[in-house]
Design a protein around this nucleic acid. Structure first.
Lengths: 198, 198
DNA sequence: CAATTATCGTTAGTGCCCTAACTGTCTGCC
DNA sequence: GGCAGACAGTTAGGGCACTAACGATAATTG
């Protein structure tokens, strides 16, 4: 359960009523927003149960998948890395790819190394850097774990037809695009922080 | 940022290729799953920035909204509580409504009380229980904060038309239903009433 | 009534995420 | 060469989520 959320979402009629009190409340927008978070949470919780049973968290799984791209030269491009430099990767690169801070990545690598999934090695050229590599244990773990993980996501999405999946992805992409526009401000001037109202 | 996720999702063609190596991988299912988590995360991040700027987290906001149902007798049913007993609420009820453990709720109430948003009072009847009430500070905070929050979600969903929103909610509900079926055990939920779940 | 059982809230310990600040190393510019 | 700035990784401290266990209280039951 990644994010704390109301157990029972308000019904649509309730949103309509609340909109009388709050003119800024757009009932259908709020409904879509709440259901998006709810469905994402539900889907994630199902997948997370798989992970938990194998003693691995979403964050750790993400790191393993990123490192796996390096191990699998022919799968590297297949899994989506385009500027894929194979070979070991640094904590900073991993943090970038996993969308967390370097400090967080340090903690993740700490526990992964403690549990024998990865290995730190100093970079011989640049002594500031470390190289992180998967161990054989991690590779065999992934080969055992991934099929079940894929079956879980397949079953989860079995409720949707092929065309429904396409529609869903298209709508979700619209939301992500809008979120990116609201978050970073693609046309933000060199000012580091956006000084304008949202 | 609630959950750690790959920054760049694999492209669909990459999933198709990976499916050759992993027969269990259903490309369109994996694509839908990843985009769902991504969009949910993006949408949540936008809303969370609003919250952060007001020094409040999603969890704390959730608690305040639950308590607010009690404060607003006419809004109580409107916001979706059906068996809504008005008046103060106990940590156990709040934990149930927010979908967290009682221990987590203790921590949330701790910080909310420290910051002056809620107040604990011992229940005069049952000395095991506590009553949690919103302070005036919290009520005025919500009245200031909610309009902006609603505008944010409206803007986020402005990328979708009314009919697209309906479609999205319908598809998301299918996923949530399927997730519930997968989470609650393969066979049956043996509890018609939420009495004893252990 | 006394003993068992259940419930409530809390505490202790762990994990993962963040920000801020620090150490060590490399780079660029004089 | 030497030094300011940039960069990599870590550490320290806080917040929020979990589980497991505890003391206090209430409810149930023999």
């Amino acid at each position: 359960m990644p994010l704390l959320l109301l157990k029972d979402l308000p019904r649509y009629e309730c949103l309509l009523e609340s909109a009388k009190e709050f003119p800024d409340l757009d009932p259908s927008a709020a409904e879509a927003y709440l259901h998006l978070l709810r469905a994402g949470d539900d889907a994630f919780a199902v997948a997370e149960r798989n992970l938990d049973e194998h003693g691995i968290s979403q964050g750790r799984f993400c790191v393993l998948m990123l490192l796996w791209r390096s191990v699998q030269p022919r799968a590297a491009t297949l899994l989506g890395a385009e500027g894929c430099a194979d070979g070991p990767r640094t904590p900073a690169e991993l943090a970038e790819g996993a969308n967390v801070t370097r400090a967080t990545m340090t903690g993740l690598i700490d526990t992964l190394e403690r549990d024998g999934f990865v290995k730190r090695e100093p970079d011989p050229v640049d002594r500031r850097m470390m190289s992180v590599r998967l161990t054989a244990k991690a590779e065999s773990f992934l080969r055992d774990f991934l099929p079940g993980h894929f079956r879980t996501t397949s079953k989860l999405m079995s409720a949707l037809s092929e065309s429904e999946r396409k529609t869903l992805v298209r709508l979700l992409n619209k939301i992500s695009t809008q979120a990116a526009a609201m978050a970073g401000g693609p046309a933000t001037p060199p000012v580091p922080r956006p000084a304008r109202h949202t």
